[in-house]
């Protein structure tokens, strides 16, 4: 075992892994983290604790991950390259490991201009760091863990034992470079990969065939990203505006049909679309897990953590393995 994390153990057992996501609040109140952690506990093997996603200030990933951990949920702390240089990142990694955290997902991070896709003021005038990029961050973590060395070469007496993750956008643009993109992250030392949300399963499977040709599915554990759709509007937005995500027209039509079945009743519109979204999610989970080389799913129910229990149970992925 590299880290001894629950996620690593599940993957080592050969059973399909399930990770979820917990978004920390824009406030100093820990209760929301505790509440969400309780909703997710038992229904996933680990939950990503986002690191100021969409460039919005929230409780830091490490602090929220520590709170989740204290409440029985195994966290995957996230570390972006946007906000910290290699000194701050390593200091935070040592601190996180000292707090008992065992999984770390390395990300470039949304650019500071993102500001929740323009819905919040955010901090578009912030200075970004990007001292390292994702592949370099993964290499640094591996060097710290396996060689007990800081990036600069100084020794680490007690190294941080992280299960190292990275994200991958399989259908990102330019699409033909994406397998090489994953190859670099795997060569850098990524133990597991969580992909960008997948709706176009056919295209994802074509990319996975290339990944198998490169043998990468045997060198890293690929968890397919599934973003739970809530409405036809969300699917249209994801299709048109989210980088690396394409949604088949048939899926958007299916959701629109669910919406139309509610007539003018707004409450019912929401209910029916959410029900349909959960059905779509379960189908996507099954299709993803049937794809050769896929070792698990990363289910993101954004600001809808309560949906995870039902999804995981309905998908036949409950109870989660325990060790």
């Amino acid at each position: 075992m590299k880290s001894g994390s629950n996620l690593e153990k599940v993957l080592a057992s050969g059973k399909p892994a399930v990770t979820a996501e917990l978004g920390p609040p824009m406030s100093a109140d820990p209760h929301e983290v505790v509440h969400k952690a309780k909703q997710l506990k038992g229904f996933c093997d680990a939950a990503n604790i986002t690191d100021c996603q969409t460039a919005v200030v929230r409780i830091s990933s490490i602090a929220a991950a520590a709170i989740a951990f204290q409440n029985g949920l195994e966290p995957v702390m996230q570390m972006t390259c946007r906000d910290r240089n290699r000194i701050a990142i390593q200091a935070d990694l040592l601190g996180a490991a000292a707090l008992g955290l065992k999984n770390c997902l390395c990300l470039a991070g949304d650019h500071q201009k993102f500001s929740a896709a323009g819905r919040l003021k955010g901090h578009p005038g912030a200075k970004n760091v990007y001292d390292l990029d994702t592949s370099q961050l993964v290499s640094m973590l591996k060097k710290m863990r396996d060689e007990s060395k800081q990036e600069g070469g100084d020794p680490i007496e007690v190294p941080p034992k992280f299960f190292i993750g990275a994200s991958w956008t399989p259908m990102g643009d330019p699409i033909d470079i994406r397998p090489m993109n994953l190859l670099k992250k795997v060569n850098a030392g990524a133990d597991f990969i969580q992909t960008q949300g997948i709706y176009d399963m056919e295209l994802f499977r074509a990319q996975m065939a290339k990944i198998r040709d490169l043998g990468l599915h045997e060198r890293t554990a690929i968890l397919a990203g599934i973003i739970v759709p809530k409405s036809a509007m969300m699917l249209k937005y994801m299709d048109s505006s989210v980088a690396g995500v394409s949604v088949p027209k048939a899926m958007i039509d299916r959701m629109s049909k669910a919406k139309a079945a509610a007539g003018e009743d707004k409450k019912k519109m929401k209910e029916l679309q959410e029900q349909e979204g959960i059905k779509i999610t379960i189908e996507l989970i099954h299709q993803a897990l049937e794809t050769p080389g896929v070792k698990g799913v990363h289910i993101q129910a954004i600001e809808w953590e309560s949906a995870i229990e039902g999804i995981v149970k309905a998908a036949g992925l409950y109870p989660r393995p325990s060790f």
């Binding site: 592949s135 370099q136 980088a243 690396g244």
Partner: peptide
Amino acid sequence: KTLMNGPCGGTN
């Protein structure tokens, strides 16, 4: 993002 091992996932 001054990435040396790009592209990131944000290319659209």
